[in-house]
Design a protein around this nucleic acid. Structure first.
Lengths: 158, 158
DNA sequence: TTTATAGTCTACTATTATAGTAAACATACT
DNA sequence: AGTATGTTTACTATAATAGTAGACTATAAA
C-alpha cells in the first residue's frame, strides 16, 4: 500500500467530485476546474480520470458544459475501490493479496513469519479503505471545516 | 507501505537470524547459507545485509567461519525498524509520515479528506509493525510449525 | 606465511514505474 | 460552422527496482 502521485491525485479528484455531488445534484465538473482547485497537472489528471472512467467509477459528458461526475452515489464508492484502480492491490506483498495473489518464493508459505505479519497489515488497511466511502470522507472534511474556523491550525481534534 | 523485493528479502533474513539466535547463543550465519535457505540471490542479499549493518541492526565477522548475526536481542528489533531501513517510511503518503513528512500539494492540508484517512492507515500499519519484534515473529512461526504437523502437504518437517 | 574463506566496496545493466507533455481527433452544444 | 470539451495515441525524462560482475580486504587455520 503506497499511494503514487496518480493514486493521490485520483483520490483527491474523487473526493472533490463527491463534495460537488452533495451541493448540486448533477454537476459536470471539468478537468480544468478540478486541476485548478486541487493543484494537479491537468494533462496528467486527464489520464487519471480516463482510467477511473474505464473502471466505471465516473462518467463524463463531452462538449460545451461537459465534465465529469461520479457514476454512483458517493456512499457506494469506497476508497479501496479507487485505490485498487489506480495503484493496484492493497496488500504490501503479493503473497497476502486477495485480488492479485502470487507466491513470493519463501521456502514454506504456511510458516512464513513475514507472511503472517503482512497478512495482518493487509487486513488492517482493508478494514479502513474498504469500509470508508466517499460520502464519509466528504462528511469528515465538512466536520473539520465547520468545527474549527479559527483555532490552532496544527490541532485537528477541536 | 509496499514491500519491495529488497524489503522482503531483508525481513526474511532478519527473521531467520532471529530464529538462529534462539538456538545457539551466537551463531555466525553466512550469506550463502541464508541465501540458500530463503531462496534469495546471494549477491543481492549481500547488499541488503550491508545496508542492515550500516543501520546497526546486524553485525558481521569476516574471514573463515565468519558471518552475520543480530546486533541486539531479537526482542529489541521491531519489524518497523527493519522496514524503514530497507523501504523507507511506513506512511502510504508523505504528508502523514512521521519520519519523512513532506507537504503533498493539496490546497488545505488541515481539511484534506485523503490525508485524514491516510493518517488512520499509517497509524494502523505502525500499530502492527512498530509493536512486533523479531522474537515475536519467531515465536509465531514456531507455533504454526508445532501446532500443524501434518495438515499441509507441502510441510517439510516430516 | 600462505591460502582459502568470508565480508566489503564500486560499477554496471536491464526493466519497470512515475510523472508528466504534445498533438491530433471526436463529440456536442450554440 | 465554430468552439468547448473529452478521447486517444505517442512520446520523453527521471528515478526506483532488481539484480550482476569483479576487484578488494580481513580473518583464521594449515
Amino acid at each position: 500500500m503506497r499511494l503514487s502521485k496518480r493514486g493521490e491525485y485520483g483520490m483527491r479528484a474523487m473526493i472533490l467530485l463527491a463534495n460537488q455531488k452533495a451541493e448540486s445534484d448533477i454537476h459536470f465538473m471539468q478537468i480544468k476546474e478540478i486541476a485548478q482547485r486541487e493543484q494537479i497537472p491537468s494533462k496528467f489528471l486527464e489520464q487519471i480520470l480516463l482510467t477511473l472512467k474505464n473502471a466505471g467509477l465516473v462518467n463524463s459528458k463531452m462538449g460545451v458544459n461537459g465534465g465529469y461526475y461520479l457514476s454512483k452515489p458517493a456512499n457506494e464508492i469506497t476508497l479501496g475501490q479507487v485505490f485498487r484502480v489506480l495503484d493496484g492491490p492493497l496488500a504490501p506483498i503479493r503473497c497476502v493479496s486477495q485480488m492479485a495473489y502470487e507466491p513470493c518464493g519463501c521456502p514454506d508459505e504456511e510458516s512464513c513469519g513475514l507472511r503472517l505479519v503482512m497478512l495482518d497489515v493487509r487486513n488492517a488497511i482493508s478494514d479502513i479503505l474498504d469500509n470508508t466511502n466517499l460520502e464519509q470522507v466528504a462528511q469528515r472534511v465538512e466536520n473539520v471545516r465547520n468545527k474549527q474556523p479559527s483555532l490552532n491550525p496544527l490541532n485537528s481534534d477541536f
